[in-house]
Amino acid sequence: MSATTPAGARSRGRGERGPAASLALHATLLAASAVAVFPVLWIVFISFGPDNAWQQPGQVLHHLGLANYRFVLLHSSFPRWMLNSVIVAGATMVIGVLIAASAGYAISRMRFPGHRPLMWTFLVTQMFPVAVLIVPLYNLMGRLDLLDTYLGLVLVYCTIAVPFCAWMLKGYFDTIPREIDEAGRVDGLTPFGTFWWLILPLARPGLAVTAFYTFLTAWGEVAYSSQFMSGAHYTLAAGLPTFAGSERANWGAMTAGSVVIAVPAALVFLLVQRHLVTGLTAGGTKG
């Protein structure tokens, strides 16, 4: 019931609204949606214009075309960066979710020395100022010969995504009844077997959300990627700004590139968002 419902509306049942309240509700939501969507649509709109379209948005409608996309996809290193991003983000996703799930399960089901400090460490790693870890990490990566390699970047991204994912998955595992584990044990499965054969399949929605979260973290990360990788190994986020940095800034290419990057991420995101609600609440709140 909305707060604007007048007292006389008592005869209406719960959840029903007067026309005025309905109108206000829809108007508010429409306005909010417009604010949320507009910047994204704006970039899409500009990207279909000529490459200086952002200076004359009014002209875009008269010069609609795919010139920016043609440049980005055929005449630049963009596809190469895209491949790098897919490799890095995909690997981060697989490795990150596997180790986060196994740690999350252990924390959810087993009481062991180090249990509490570990949970605390997960929280503390969220507090590390990324900008300050870069220098020591750079040195370390250099010493391990991992600079400018996919593996190095994947490992760095794992440290960003895994603590949050382990925390979320722990919450998710907590919602799965312990009786299932016990049944597995009675049937002679090892704890890891129980985890692998019984719990993981049940936790699929939670895994989907964490997988996606991990992927997106790696897909959009800028700072590490641009410091650690060079030329041929640039990921999208590191490569894209080079369109604007060259002698002649090509903002048109940048808008088209942004759209190409955002569309797949946004589509998958919108598909899994239903699980996101359950996943996040379970992870965030159940202890």
């Binding site: 939501l29 909010a32 949320a36 969507v37 994204v40 955002a262 991420a265 946004a266 995101f269 968002q273």
Partner: peptide, 9 residues
Amino acid sequence: ALILPWAVP
């Protein structure tokens, strides 16, 4: 629509 800003990098 409201979730979109989170969905784009």
